[in-house]
Design a protein around this nucleic acid. Sequence first.
DNA 1: TTGTAGGCGTTATCAT
DNA 2: ATGATAACGCCTACAA
Lengths: 327, 327
Amino acid sequence: MATISDVARKAGVSTATVSRALNGKSTVDPALVARVRAAAAELGYHPNGLARNLRRQETAVLALIISDVENPFFTSIARGVEDVAQTAGYSVVLCNSDESADKERRYIDVALQERVAGVVLSPTDVSSSIERLRQRGTPVVAVDRPLAESTSDQVLVDTRLAACEATGHLITAGYRRIGCVTGPAGVRTADDRLAGYRDALEAAGVGLRLESRAEYRASGGRQATRELLTESPDALLVANSAMAIGALEALGAAGLRPGRDVGVVAFDDVPWATLIDPPLTVVAQPAYEIGTEAAKLLLARIADPSLPPAATTLGARLIERGSSRRG
Amino acid sequence: MATISDVARKAGVSTATVSRALNGKSTVDPALVARVRAAAAELGYHPNGLARNLRRQETAVLALIISDVENPFFTSIARGVEDVAQTAGYSVVLCNSDESADKERRYIDVALQERVAGVVLSPTDVSSSIERLRQRGTPVVAVDRPLAESTSDQVLVDTRLAACEATGHLITAGYRRIGCVTGPAGVRTADDRLAGYRDALEAAGVGLRLESRAEYRASGGRQATRELLTESPDALLVANSAMAIGALEALGAAGLRPGRDVGVVAFDDVPWATLIDPPLTVVAQPAYEIGTEAAKLLLARIADPSLPPAATTLGARLIERGSSRRG
DNA sequence: TTGTAGGCGTTATCAT
DNA sequence: ATGATAACGCCTACAA
């Protein structure tokens, strides 16, 4: 409630002096600084960030719009973004688009209205509504999934290659009826992982393709796996950790044991991967690093909008555990 | 970049009319509304939320400060808060205090500066720095952990009772050397769960207490469990799902199997609970509901600050699975 | 070194 | 029904 003029009055100085004193500007009499500080403390004065930002025409806030708060992959990204932003004096507001283009648009509107300094976004769609951000000149960096315009900053994972390697690993282990459980068509990572799977089969001359798509959720994984099971696969590549839960449940329900009856590799190294029996072989994506990298890119662009667009691609690594051993 | 006056000029009206037209105020000539809309669209005009909020002296933003973004329990709360807030036209910004009183204070400062409409907080400490929020009159509701002042809104879980029931369940199953792995002293949920454990032992006349505390993390659970193992417990109550991961790892490393060699019950119903063998018996907390309840309380208080403080306590429920069967 | 004053973009009050 | 204008609280030339 207390404003800068209240403090000024109490300290017996002008608002300008209060502003300068509180913002540590070079030239202010130490005695006055003390008086101002005391007055501010006494009044419980907190500068009004709204007014300040309006005046300064900038906000020390970054928006992070992700497609699923409950997915550990995205929360790791969030930590990465936050850690970097924090040390640079920025706050991060996390928004959950929930894989819905509509919510994404709403949050982008909010970001626009609140004049955030920049946006980190995992786009639900290539043709995401970042058009508006561009127009306004708000810096954006895409993570996990690319944007159509190659003119924006992006931090991606070479997920197609990773899927190819993972599938190759299954082939090397001796599996031949390998199924791929992936996300919805149109979701770039889902498409890429499927493509990588196909790459590997082709490279190895394996003709049989067993593919099934569903939502990037446990329920989706369960359903897609059940469908695939009618084709008696001897191994499964699962494109997402949430789906992996459903896939493993479906396998269990069918009396099939990972690593003995069916080889399994899943994307994302979840903390419980080593708790199941046998432990789950995974494709570990550098989620935290994606976050830090994205934040750095964003801060750099905020500092200098004329920078050429940077597209970082990080690698994923296969962690072999028991579930992909040949039964 | 385009401001309201740009739109006004283009539409050939005053800024007042633009404002009224765009905000759907009662009395504006439909023809003008159309002209204004067109001009706004053409200019790619987005109202400046900063200026608007400054003028209106209010923000449609809620801050949610939680102690761990990577904990599914808290992300479920986040979803709950968000879903309710969303339908009421509020945005939610998520902040990660990371179990650090310092970060918490920083985020509270940000919330104060940005003049958010209200705060949902899982306090790192009873004597949390919400003092400042109170002073400013910013509504707060505490979740998961109580605040010292009973004068604030809170949404809690009767976690002591739940721990007591869970321990009772182990006793009923025939276990007698039951250990409790809980979080740091001072963290209210950790203390409460320990207290519930003791309640149950006492009620059943079991004299042997095996207690071990550590950080609410996998590494903490691992360490605490390892310590407890020197006492040859025949069962374990684990106070948190992150710790459960560490505890299960420690058990495995010692060649002990849950449900056969050692009965296990853990707090929080994680999605992978049914994937391990045997499935994990858990105390399921109504996390999503905590979030929705907290948001409703907060919105109610924002609407009417004179409301008497409400303290909701929700129940948790024990889900019996294989890990707590007597071996 | 300090004070005065103007303006950031909106909305609301008061005229018209 | 519409327009001029005064705030909202802060920062920063510019003046003293």
